[in-house]
């Protein structure tokens, strides 16, 4: 496996908020190209804080984050702007991910607009690059009609908005996409559609995901490797094939038990 290119390296990251709350303690892992790491744990375990630290919207207290071998934690603001295109995020609430006051095309094209219309490779070679052509191609890639480009977010369903958020995330052809519970606020059918879309895009474009979720079934479906977090620490780490093995950490077993009883109730 070592010959596979390393996309993300998180090394001994710690983060403490004011009033002494230790949000992250000594978090380390690596993510390789085309792979997906699932991050599970109860609410308040530090999953979203870790995502924000990787995205560099929260400052690290100690440790470091490397993206494609570049130390993000040491970068100045201007260098960081350049590196941004290699990293994108999809959030939990589709309604909050898109500005309700601007049209879909302007939300969708925001990352490419910042990059001053650099030609993306997903656009067929025979097609001339225009902002419109890139937007239409992105909509096709996530299975949406280009007619939605001129509407406002409130005219779309939750699943459609999440597809737009995914299209925006893939527009810069990033090395890493952080998926922060992207299916948590969707109905069951939309959840299945979005997970299937994420899986097919991962194979098509060779994307790497850090997939944060409460849903163990979704994590098992999309991830190659799973990390279990509690109280800001990684308690357990394993290949997804070994999720139900007997030598799992007691906390992982507890999570599986709770998840299975919820499934039974449903």
């Amino acid at each position: 496996m070592n010959f596979i290119e390393e996309v993300l390296r998180v090394d001994a990251v710690s983060k403490q908020y004011t009033r002494g709350h230790q949000a992250l303690s000594d978090i380390s892992f690596t993510l390789k190209k085309g792979m997906c790491i699932g991050l599970v744990g109860e609410s308040g375990s530090g999953k979203s804080t870790l995502a924000k630290c990787i995205l560099m919207v929260e400052k690290l207290d100690s440790g470091g984050v490397w993206l494609n071998g570049q130390p993000l934690h040491q970068m100045k603001k201007k260098a960081m702007q350049q590196e941004r295109k290699a990293m994108q995020a999809v959030f939990q609430h589709p309604a909050a991910s898109l500005n309700p006051k601007i049209k879909i095309i302007d939300s969708l094209m925001e990352p490419l607009d910042v990059q001053k219309n650099k030609r993306p490779s997903f656009l067929p070679a025979e097609k001339k690059y225009t902002r419109e052509a890139a937007a239409v191609r992105l909509m096709e890639m996530v299975g949406l009609s280009p007619s939605y480009l001129r509407v406002y977010p409130h005219e779309l369903s939750g699943g459609q908005k999440q597809r737009i958020a995914i299209a925006r995330a893939i527009s810069t052809e990033p090395a890493l996409i952080i998926l922060d519970e992207p299916t948590a606020s969707l109905d069951v059918l939309a959840q299945a559609d979005i997970l299937q879309l994420l899986k097919s895009l991962k194979f098509q474009l060779g994307l790497s995901y850090l997939f944060i979720s409460h849903d163990l079934a979704a994590v098992q479906f999309l991830s190659d490797y799973i990390l279990v977090m509690r109280h800001g620490r990684i308690e357990d780490r394993f290949d997804k094939k070994h999720l139900f093995s007997q030598d799992r950490h007691s906390y992982t077993k507890k999570l599986i038990h709770v998840f299975e009883s919820q499934e039974d109730q449903q």
Binding site: R84, F91, Q92, A96, L98
Partner: peptide
């Protein structure tokens, strides 16, 4: 809101965020 975070991740400057997202 997440779209403000997305704009910051996309590399928009504070002025651009104010102009594009807050002003409307």
């Amino acid at each position: 809101k997440d779209y403000m975070l997305a704009a910051a991740i996309n590399g928009l400057s504070t002025w651009s965020i104010m102009k594009k997202h807050l002003f409307p």
